[in-house]
Design a protein around this nucleic acid. Structure first.
Lengths: 205, 205
DNA sequence: ACGAAGATGAACCGAGGAGTACAATCGGCG
DNA sequence: CGCCGATTGTACTCCTCGGTTCATCTTCGT
């Protein structure tokens, strides 16, 4: 258990990361603080020293996890700032990257925890609003608006267009990933991205 | 608490319904059997008499809830069997009905419970497969195929078309319903159904 | 009316886990 | 070196809750 450096590196960070992985694996109620402490390579009283409560520990862990997840997703749609000659191709690439993130373990766990604990922790709604799908849609709408201005698209309502694109992308995932317990083949994701972008473009160009 | 008829009407049914509502309200781990018994107007040993375990109680409650939810949803797309002259209108009506079901308490609770407990109860995947979105997509694909045969649609791949229509419908709900904690205005749902059907029809006709 | 089967309430057991107390230890800093 | 604050293990106190037992009704079929 005592492999982690005994020294002065930020325990708090380790605790939050360990907490997120344990919560993701067990759920809030079944995760015991002792196991989180073990996962973080830290003693149980240290956990209570940094984060007063199991509840606040959960909140902070969720917020940290959600923030990094959002950063990943925003980074994934960066290519849309410099689209090549083939708009459909870059759009498909971006869609594919988003799908891979969305089928990854971190994002699935985050969604599961949000759904399951939102009734007991209503403040998680703020986390979801701050780092959730709305934020991604907003950034995507910005990109689509720029593309429309450049004459490469005909999205009169960029918000709606973005919402429909992400819906076409992520909607089928629930069934395809068996509620997040399976990660589909990369080829399947590629195919999914292609069909979604195709219908999107026939509707919005 | 003894308001429920003391007689011989099916206790088991009452227990399952009460269990579903309590599980929906509290989640699996935080729901205690005593409260379920109270909700069902029944004594705790009676619960253990009908359903041996808390786990099996949960499984049966989930299956019952999922079955009725599926029946509701399948009934909602019945109008597609006799579409009027205006296909877009009936499609929008069906979409609206589906959206109202999907924003209702029962379905949201079911989704929450499925997501949160699928790791501890992998057999819930069978329930989801039996009564979940796939089944609805299948029935919808059947309708779309019939419509295509009748020349009212051009859905070469009915499965894909159905998947994309439901995605366009239900995708935006996650954000609009704040993870299922809010039920949008009926006008908003109507608008959502309209835009979804519009893009669907421009892509598939 | 009566007996059997099921339902009821209450008390009880045991496990698991949150949170705390405390004494021993480690680390950096003057 | 010697202090001080943070860290560690361990043990402990509650408390919740699953599941059971049991003695006492209630209901129904006959």
């Amino acid at each position: 258990m005592g492999n982690t450096t005994r020294g002065r590196i930020d325990k708090r960070q380790a605790i939050l990361e360990g907490a997120f992985t344990v919560f993701a694996r067990q759920g809030y109620a079944q995760a015991c603080v002792q196991e989180i402490a073990n996962e973080a390579g830290v003693a149980k009283p240290t956990v209570y020293n940094h984060l007063t409560d199991k509840a606040t520990l959960f909140r902070h862990a969720m917020e940290a996890g959600a923030r990094t997840a959002l950063e990943e997703r925003l980074a994934a749609l960066e290519p849309l700032a410099h689209p090549g000659d083939d708009l459909a191709a870059t759009l498909t690439d971006v869609a594919h990257a988003l799908l891979r993130l969305h089928t990854g373990g971190r994002w699935c766990a985050l969604r599961r925890l949000l759904y399951s604990e939102v009734t007991r922790f209503p403040d998680l709604l703020d986390v979801a609003a701050e780092y959730g799908t709305d934020r991604l849609n907003q950034a995507l709408a910005d990109r689509l608006a720029r593309l429309t201005l450049a004459g490469r698209l005909r999205a009169a309502d960029p918000e709606l267009a973005a919402e429909q694109l992400t819906s076409l992308l992520f909607g089928p995932l629930e069934a395809r990933t068996r509620l997040g317990t399976r990660t589909p083949e990369d080829a399947e994701l590629r195919e999914l991205a292609g069909t979604a972008v195709r219908t999107f473009l026939t509707a919005w160009s």
